[in-house]
Structure formats: C-alpha cells, structure tokens
Write a protein that binds this DNA or RNA. Structure first.
Length: 585
RNA sequence: CGGGAUGUGGCUCAGUCUGGUAGAGCGCCGCGUUCGGGACGCGGAGACCGGAGGUUCAAAUCCUCUCAUCCCGACCA
C-alpha cells in the first residue's frame, strides 16, 4: 500500500461547511473530511482517504482472522434465487433482500449475507471428517435494502462486511470454533484502538445457546448495554437478566379484597398516578400482545419497561406484536388504557407476570372496564397466572446477575456478532460428511460478522471533537500529518520535503500538506481529517532547529529537535500510541 | 409503510406568502498584496431555480402530478 501522499496532488475535497443532509457526527465529518461522498440513499463512494481507512480496518481484521486459522475466499455478490429457496429464506427474508431477474427471467438477489452460498460451496467439496473443521471468510460488499438507511456509513444499504462461517463435525468442535472467533474479535478490536465490550446477545430467530455482540462504546450508539462494574458481565439490554431479590416480600399477602375505583379518562400510567396521587411502582401495567395470532397479557410494574424480546423468548414465539386497539377491546372488553389481569374476557388468553410482581400485593390495575381501575389486587389470590417470568428491562438499580455487583447502562454500536448456527443451514441444504465409522453426519455451523465500514463510522462516533476526527493510529488513513508552513520561504519547503522523505524512509505513513495554502487552512484541515500525529514545520521553528508536534487526541504539543529528529520522533510516537492503548508495530 | 421537512451555481443559504424573467457568502479561475488557527483588493467563469404538465401577457414564485434526499415513527396503554 502506498504509504504517503502529497495533499497538493490528492483528491481530498474537504468542506468548510456542513452538508445539509448529514445529521450524525461521523457522517458529517466523513463528508467534510473528504472521506466519502453519497451516491444515493444508503450508498457511498469511498474517496482516497476513506478507502485508506477502510482498508486499514480490513487489514487488521484479515490478519487476525488468518491468525485464528480462517481462510479468506471471495464469494459472489449476485446469488441465484433457488439457493435461497432451499433454506426457505427466499420466502422469509422479506424486502431487505433485493431481488431481480436476469435476461432469461431467472431469479437472483444481491447477497445480504452468505450462508447459502458458503454452505453450497462446502457441501460440494467436503466429504470426510478429515476435512473438518473448516472456517472460511470473506471481506466483501453486502447489500441490504434497509427500511430506513441512516446515519451515513453507520447503517447503509451497501456496506463492507467481514463474514466468516465455520463448519465442524460436532457441537464440541463448533464451540471451539466459536471460542476462537470470540478471541480473534477481541484481538481485532483491541488493535483497532477502540473502546469496546463483548456482550451477551439475544440469538434472535437463529436460535442456539449463546451469541455475543461486539459493541463499540459511544454515546450516540443505538444499542443499550448493561455492564457490571465488578465482574466481566456485559449484556445487551434485550438480553440482560434481571435478578429479583427474593427476600423482598414482607406484605404477608393480607391486603383487603380488591374493589373498583373510578378513573375517568386516565389511560396512561402518568395520568393515573397524578389522578390517584400514587407512585408508579404501586401499580401494574398490563400490555396486550398478539403472539403468533394468540392473545397474551404481559404485566410489569408501572415504572418498568417491558422487554418484548424476553416475552418472545419466554413463549418461544416467532412473532410478537402489540395488540391493536380493536384487539384490546375484544380481549378485555374495555378501551386501551384499562386492561388488567382480573377478569380478562378473552378465552384462553395467556397471562404472564414479571417476577417481581410476585412479592407484593395491594396493586392498582386496570379493571377491564372503561374509566375504571382496581385497587388492592393480589395476583396470587385474585388471578390465575400462566407464569411468572423475567419480562422487564434491567435498570441501574438492579444488580449484576452473575456477581451481584453494580450495573451501569451504556450506549454502544454493534460492530461485530458471533453466533452458533447449529444445523439450521447445513440440514436444510444437506451439508454432510462421513465420520470415522462411515456414518453420514450433518455439519455444525457457526457464523461471525464484522461491519468493516461501520467500524470506520463508529471509530469517529467514539473519537472526535468540535474540530474534527481523532483517528486511532491503527486505522487513521495516515499516521502523521506533516504541515509545511513554507509560504514563499524555499528553505522551509526544502526542509519539509526532506522530512517527508525521512519519515517515509522510516516506514511512517505521512500525509504531507504541501499545498500553497495559508497556515490556518492547513491547521483546520489537519484537525478535521484526524491524523493522530501532527508535525508542523514553519520558518521560526526551522531557524531554532525544532519542529512542532501535536497529539491530535490530547491536543498536547511538544517540540522535537531537528538535529535528533528520528530519535525524538520515535519516542513521541511511542507516547501517542500508548495513549491509544497501542504498542508500536 | 405512516408522519414531518427540503430540493435555487461545487457547498451553505436568501428570494416563493404578495407572479414581472435570479442573489449573497464560501469555493473556483486570473492578477496583485499577504502568510502560525479557514486573509484582502481588483477582475472573471459558473444556475434554463429537481422533473413533467397546467393557469397566466408573464411562473423559482400559483395549481396538479412526479422524482429525489433528510428527519421522526412504525412497542409501553
């Protein structure tokens, strides 16, 4: 890879003003810094600087994947429809799958992921247990016709992804493959210089015992993760288990019989609390769901958030959606806002309560009657429940499910996901092999994704300031920005040229701002583009035999002696990299 | 898919309500003066105002349709 560039000759169109279409920070800075340009919604061109960074991320991913024993391949982006029919996904994948026909009217799609293609590849070639395990990966452009692409590179329709697929002879082998990928991912994100957390994640429709997401921590992230302050536990909010202290109940379940209270037009928890002068944690909210076509009432305390994923998993359901107002009327006999567990109308409606509701009584609930609620409800006494379950989101007031430590909620951006596929695809597509006994076995699969282009965006979301990007040294397009403030002074220009040559000779990647611009523009552009180290050579400095060095991350400046440039630079470089948690490579 | 908003030189915007034939700043080209945190002067190039149709003597402006882009939502009773 070319490791240097003169800015005077480079296609790096920086923008002084913020393009109107960009809302989030990474998108704005990528446009302003001349890294990308948008072609159409969710689809971007990578300009030289953007591509440089993208490739650096890809290289780190590639090196660690290879180190972990995976082998790189490149599969086609265009895939035949009948392959997708084999796994049933031609039917189920939905509109994210961009479909089209060729001249012979055959069905094709643009690959949003490659389980079908890779399984087809492997089933054709692998016959014996001796050929397993196998881990194949690629770094490739994916296309998903997202409902709503947004945030620039963060959620594009076309994006670069590393996807790996492992094939093992049995569960134990699959576990080992999974572990190897988990470790490789940790190594990757450490080398990228990003603050990240592997978190336990919901396995979604794929199923399987466990799955981890790799989250880059950033306040602008769309995901919420719960992390323990004491142990290693971290989980996606949708997965994080809530532990209820069992000694909490001291009410004796001896409250008086429930009775109706009039609550005219009080539909929401807030309205009800204001009206009755009570706290939200003394009432139960009852949410009605259409679960695979059947009615379900789910209850959580008034101040809690119901977690739909937990509900879905508890019921082993495939489709959970909030009931429509019509369904609510049909099932409860009351308009929306007055549902409660006592006397629910719908036949065979399932009633599920969050676990913590078991430890108190005297609840306020809806009465299944317009403008009416109940007080003094005791779930044990008054309701026939189908189950208690962990249904709500964890909060910072809860304790770690592993060690009881303090839990903090943080925002993150999902940049990697590892999970076990089991037999889902290998069975559907008959990817089998013969074991030692000559017996046919189905391969056990795993799949492992990293959003390469999303990493670029999330690195910026995590590391920026008002002036621009602060790239970690490992993925900055160039490690050093060398600014020549020569003006008309040929001596400075000459000295800067020499430094440029010297640095590249030392194997340092340099972006050399040799443009005929005023110093202010160069400073602004350098800060914007985010190279971690800035070297500024001006007339005064040259006279005094020094060059100014600025750490973009901290803003800290120091002066390096030109007489011992190589030595002083090397030591400064070490300092800067250490600040990023990186060694010298 | 529902809601909201916006399309005017490369970029950011004004002009639209109240029709009269297009403006500013930045950027770009030339010359000169400048040169350590986005300089200044003079001269210049660049837009059939997203597209189509309509109303009108006359449309960036009014009407209809359409295309594109952005934001919010598509779960908390």
């Amino acid at each position: 890879m070319e490791n240097r560039m003169r800015l005077s000759k480079a296609y790096v169109p920086t923008l002084k003003e913020v393009p109107a279409e960009a809302e989030v920070v990474s998108h704005r800075l990528l446009l302003r810094g001349g890294f990308v340009r948008q072609l159409t919604r969710g689809i971007y061109t990578y300009l030289p600087l953007g591509l440089k960074t993208l490739n650096k991320v890809a290289d780190i991913v590639r090196q660690e994947m290879n180190r972990a024993g995976a082998q790189e391949i490149l599969m086609p982006m265009v895939q035949p429809g009948d392959l997708w029919a084999e796994t049933g996904r031609w039917e189920f994948y939905g509109k994210e799958l961009l479909r089209f026909k060729d001249r012979a009217d055959r069905d094709y799609c643009l690959g949003p992921t490659h389980e079908e293609v890779v399984t087809d590849l492997v089933r054709g070639e692998v016959r014996s247990y001796r050929q397993l395990p196998l881990n194949l990966y690629q770094i490739q452009t994916k296309f998903r016709d997202e409902i709503r692409p947004r945030f620039g590179l963060m959620r594009g329709r076309e994006f670069v992804m590393k996807d790996a697929y492992s094939f093992d002879r049995d569960e134990a082998g699959a576990d080992a493959s999974y572990r190897a990928m988990y470790d490789a991912y940790c190594a990757i994100f450490r080398r990228l210089g990003l603050e990240f957390r592997p978190v336990e994640a919901d396995t979604g429709s794929i199923g399987g015992n466990f799955s981890h997401e790799f989250m880059v921590l950033a306040d602008t992230g769309e995901d919420t993760i719960a992390t323990c302050q004491a142990c290693e536990y971290a989980a996606n909010l949708e997965k994080a288990e809530v532990v209820v202290p069992v000694d909490k109940c001291d009410c004796g379940h001896d409250c008086p019989a429930f009775s109706e209270i009039p609550t005219p037009a009080k539909h929401t928890v807030d309205e009800l609390c204001d009206f009755l002068g009570i706290e939200a944690d003394t009432l139960i909210k009852t949410l009605l769901f259409d679960v695979d076509g059947a009615p379900v009432a789910a209850m959580v305390r008034g101040d809690r958030e119901l977690n739909e994923i937990k509900l879905k998993n508890h019921l082993h359901a495939t489709d959970v959606k909030l009931a429509s107002p019509e369904q609510v009327v049909a099932w409860t006999g009351a308009p929306v806002g007055f549902a409660g567990p006592v006397g629910l109308k719908a036949a065979n409606i399932k009633i599920i309560a969050d676990r913590e509701l078991d430890f108190e009584c005297g609840w306020f609930t809806g009465a299944n009657k317009a403008d009416t609620h109940l007080k003094n409800v005791d779930l044990r006494r008054d309701v026939k429940l189908d189950a208690y379950a962990d249904l709500r989101n964890i909060t910072e007031a809860d304790r770690c499910p592993r060690c009881g430590g303090e839990v903090k909620l943080r925002k993150g951006i999902e940049v990697g996901h590892v999970f076990k596929l089991g037999l889902k695809y290998s069975q559907a597509m008959n990817a089998s092999f013969l074991d030692e006994n000559g017996k046919e076995q189905i391969m056990v699969m795993g799949c492992y994704g990293i959003g390469v282009s999303r990493i670029v965006a999330s690195a910026i979301e995590q590391n920026h300031d008002a002036d621009g990007i602060k790239f970690p040294p490992s993925i900055a397009p160039y490690e050093v920005a060398l600014l020549s403030l020569a003006g008309k002074d040929p001596e400075v220009a000459e000295a800067a040229d020499k430094l440029y040559a010297e640095l590249t000779g030392m194997g340092v990647e340099v972006l050399y701002d040799d443009r005929d611009e005023r110093p202010g523009s160069k400073f602004k552009d350098a800060d914007l583009m985010g190279m971690p180290m800035q070297l500024v050579l001006g007339g005064k400095g040259l006279k005094n035999g020094i060059i100014e060095a600025k750490d973009r991350r901290t803003g800290e400046k120091r002066e390096l002696k030109l007489a011992d440039f190589a030595g002083e630079f090397a030591s400064w470089r070490r300092t800067v990299r250490q600040g990023w948690g990186l060694g010298v490579e």
